[in-house]
Structures are given as C-alpha cells and as structure tokens.
Design a protein around this nucleic acid. Structure first.
Length: 484
RNA sequence: GGCGCAUUCGUCUAGUGGCCUAGGACACCGCCCUCUCAAGGCGGAGAUCAGGGGUUCGAAUCCCCUAUGCGCUACCA
C-alpha cells in the first residue's frame, strides 16, 4: 500500500450525471476515506464537441446530493489545480512533446479519409483492426519539418510491436496482452487537445493518484496506459477495474433500458443514503452480510480486494425495497424535511404556481389541476389515449415519433428550458415532416396525462427532463400496443 | 472477426479444498397480525455451484477445454 492513498473520480461532462459515475465515485471515496487519504474530482472535458458546462454543474450537484465529498476539485481547488482538463492543455502538449523528443511517440499525418479506408479494408479482409503504423517510420527530421510547417497532425504513442505485455489489475492479477494486438494510440488530437489516454495518465501521475479505480471498460486500454507510464519513466499506480453495472438483460447499463441519470433518482425521491447503500451492494458485501448500512459503516468495513467481478444487474425492485426501509425509519418531521427538500420545496412550488395561478378559482383546485407536477408516471384515460395519437397518424407512427423525438432531440439537450424544449420539438417537426399542431398535442398528453394544460414548453421545463423522458417513453410503449 | 474479462437460486450475494445433501437478502407463494392497503412476524418454494475433462482421500473452491455473457477494437470518454 502506498504511503498516501489518493483516488479520483474523473467524469466526462457529456450528458446527464450517470449512476455509473456515482458507483465508481463511491468506491473511490471509500478507498480514500478508509485509508485517511484524499479523494479528487477531476473533470475530463477534452472532447470539445461533447463537453458542456451544464453537464459539469449537474455532476457536482449530483455528487453533492449523494454526499460523496471530494477534497480537491474544480470547485474547491487544491494543490494540483486546475482540475479541469480543458484548462491543462499546455501540460499535455508539453508531455506529448517530451515523448516525441525521446522517440516514444511520433507525429502522424494520416488523413481521416485514409484512416477510414484502412479500417474498411481491415474489416473486409477480416484482418486485425487498428492503425497500421504508416507514419511511425517517418524520418524524425522530416516529420519535425512538416509539423513546423503547420501541417495538420496527431501524436501517436509507439507501442512495442512484438512480445507480450503484462499488466496488473488488483482484482484480476496479471493480465497478458499480445503486443502485436495493440496499435499506436493517438495521444494528442489534431485540435491540440489530448485524448483520454494521455490526459488521464499525465494527470494521475501529476496529481499523485495512488489507486486508479475505474470501470471495466478501461481494462482493454490498460496496456497503453502502462506503456505511457514506462515511456515517461513514472511509477504506476495500483489499477483496479470495477465490474460494469448491467441492465436486466445483462448488457451494460443504458438509458434505453434503465433509468441511468442520477437526476431521475433524485426527482423520483430515492434517498441518497439508500442509493449509496444499494450501490455498495453491487459487487461488495459487508463482512457480516448485513445489507443495510450507512456510508460511514461502509467505509469502515471496506476493502478494495473484496469486490466481486461478475457484472451486477441494477435491480430497481431491490433498490425500491431498500429505499422504503430508509423512508420508514424517518420520523414524520424528517420525512417532511425530505419532501420539502426537492419535490415540495418552495423553489419547485414557485415554478409550478405561475402555471396554475390563473387557472384555478378556489385553492383546492390546485391539487387536481397541478397534480401531475408531483407524480411520477401519469395514467391516460380513454379520452387521453385518443388525444395521444397524432392527427392523421397511426398509433405506431406516433410511438415511433416519440422515440425519435426523445433520443435525437430531447435527450441531447444539455440545458433543459422552455426555449430549448421548444427548439427541440420544432426541430423534430422540421426533420420528420410533422406539423407543430400534429406533434404538440400528443406530447402534451404524454407528459401531463391530459389535453388541457398550461403552455407546453413551460410545463415541460418545470417537469424537467427526467420526468418528461419517462412519460414520453411510457406513452410510446402504450401507443405501440394500441390498435389502429 | 480479433483481443480481454467474467460465469453460485429469476436478481444481489455468502462461500478462498473437508463445517455445503450450498447460507442470507429482494422478488414470488402461504400463514399470522389487521376496518382496508402497506409495513412487520413466521414459514415455503427456488441453484445437480454454465458444461465437460483433469488434480486430490476429498472441489462451488485449483488446472485445462468448450459454451455463454459482457467489454474493447475512434483524432469519445
């Protein structure tokens, strides 16, 4: 065990905060706390197309909600600041240059077209996929001149071409790879930003990370990372790859088959302590097999080496049971506090009220009128079912439209608001050849259960992305089973 | 296709060579409690430990093969 245990969670701000991030964060947190070390939050926003500040904000909020506090991070600072990779570009460029200078990496001028063609050819000939090392043999002086002339290029890592590479995983022991199997990974993209591989290794080293605890999907690139440490002459941290959370059909957990956004769980009213408790049960067991325990108890009993490797199915039923146990243990006052925390907070109520204000005559109408702002699923009565089907379209077509709308227009919205929702709905119409009139009523009924509601975009904005996506999906499922 | 990882009740898991004719939890079923529904209590059913070979006096536990699942195979992380 290294003298100082330092772990990190390094999420990429490219969407809604993911339950898998919480899972990996929990184990990293436990490891650091158990050994009196530090837990670091680092934002891996090196993909400029997909990274979004709103996403980063949501990650902070979600992790705070769960109570997984970090000692160093973009918001709290620390001795290794900055903790946002987009602010560390110069560091990566320097390191990439070092590698090129010592012959451990090289500039590659291959065009995307050539790379695409290469891949296609390899696929057709059923050959091995991967970069063919085309620019690896370039004369360094020539290469340097081309770079100096401003020719577009990337920097690739020189991997050994023969023999085998053995890397160590704390849970799996030695894992052996055939060197010929691994191609020369891009380290620095042509936009000057690093890839995950470079940024990750450089930062883990510079930030003194002792244990790299991450998801199993990274295991295959471990030899590349190991090679990077060797090329820099750095000591490797301990690597530990956690199993991937799974859908009920055992595929890697995904939003098509399971709610994966932490925002969903928060809005639905899962208690953070129940969520953490449940996550801790995924692959790990208390020494006495107790299933209900606090974060502190988890930390006190935690041992990294005791994690099981089978990919655990994320089972909403059991999570629900656990959450119920936590809720039942709350006093009435505490329960009220939880309710006031989010679902019945003044903040939320103040967003709902303007939408109901002009539409009620006596106060008690409020509950009946605005009830759908406070529930999870909505029920569609016969009239609603009729209105759910778009005019001049079949139920099946409407169902299809809902799915496309959701996946291609609603899900990618980084900042959910009346404006962005409206833009998304209109963009769908444009692309799919639907009229606004055709689309808006079915969507209204889908997200509210009714045909008479406050203005659609405002309503959807207040309901939030998670509730809307859940209801649109449920409506699509219902439509699919409806007769024409 | 190639490479890697994994594989105990439907699900989460205990189990690290004899204590296992495999234990617990969720879900399921039954009974009790009860004005209802939950919750709670008690009980039941549910896994030839993926399959096949070894090693051993003895294997869920060690080794090999096969199968299946998952991941990776991007100038995404």
């Amino acid at each position: 065990m290294p003298d100082v245990v330092r772990t990190r969670i390094a999420p990429s701000p490219t969407g809604d905060p993911h339950v898998g991030t919480a899972y990996v964060a929990l184990f990293n947190y436990a490891m650091a706390r158990k050994h009196g070390g530090q837990f670091v939050l680092r934002i891996e926003d090196t993909d400029r197309q997909r990274s979004h500040p709103a996403s980063e904000r949501m990650i902070f909020e979600a992790l705070h909600w769960l109570g997984l506090t970090w000692d160093e991070g973009p918001d709290v600072g620390g001795p290794h600041a900055p903790y946002r990779q987009s602010e560390r570009s110069e560091v990566y460029r320097d390191h990439a240059r070092q590698l090129v200078d010592r012959g451990a990496a090289y500039p590659c001028f291959c065009s995307r077209e050539r790379l695409d063609a290469l891949r296609e050819e390899q696929r057709l000939s059923k050959g091995q996929l991967g970069y063919d090392g085309h620019c690896r043999g370039l004369d360094p002086t020539v290469a340097r001149r081309r770079v100096a002339a401003g020719e577009e290029h990337v920097i690739r890592l020189k991997m050994p071409t023969e023999g085998s590479l053995e890397v160590a995983d704390l849970l799996r022991g030695a894992v052996r790879f055939d060197a010929a199997q691994i191609d020369d990974q891009v380290l620095l993209k042509s936009d000057g930003f690093p890839t995950y591989h470079l940024a990750n290794v450089v930062d883990d080293h510079l930030m003194g990370i002792s244990h790299v605890i991450r998801a199993e999907e990274w295991l295959s690139s471990l030899p590349k990372h190991a090679q990077l440490y060797r090329a820099f002459g750095w000591e490797q941290p301990v690597f530990c790859h956690l199993p991937l959370l799974r859908n009920a059909d055992s595929s890697k957990i995904s939003k098509r088959k399971n709610p994966v956004s932490l925002n969903h769980y928060r809005r639905a009213g899962y208690l953070p302590e129940a969520m953490l408790n449940y996550l801790a049960l995924m692959g790990w067991t208390m020494p006495d097999e107790r299933e209900v325990f606090t974060l502190n108890e988890f930390v006190a009993n935690f041992s990294l080496g005791d994690i099981r490797l089978g990919g655990p199915v994320f089972d909403l039923t059991k999570l629900g049971w656990l959450n119920g146990r936590y809720i039942r243990e709350l006093s009435a006052e505490a329960l009220l506090g939880r309710l006031r925390g989010d679902l019945l907070s003044d903040d939320y109520l103040l967003k709902v009220l303007p939408l109901a204000h002009e539409r009620i005559d006596v106060l008690e109408d409020f509950i009946a009128y605005a009830g759908f702002f406070f529930t999870g699923e909505v029920a569609w009565d016969d009239a609603a079912r009729t209105a759910l089907v778009a005019k001049d379209r079949t139920p099946a077509e409407t169902a299809k439209a809902f799915r496309v709308l959701l996946e291609e227009h609603l899900d990618p919205i980084p900042e959910w608001s009346a404006e962005s929702v409206e833009a998304a709905l209109r963009a769908f119409c444009e692309k799919a050849g639907w009229t606004a009139k055709q689309l808006f009523m079915p969507v209204r009924v889908a997200v509210t259960g009714r045909a008479a509601t406050p203005p659609l975009f405002d309503t959807m904005a207040v309901l939030g992305k998670e509730v809307c996506r859940r209801r649109v999906r449920a409506a699509a499922d219902l439509l699919r089973t409806m007769k024409v």
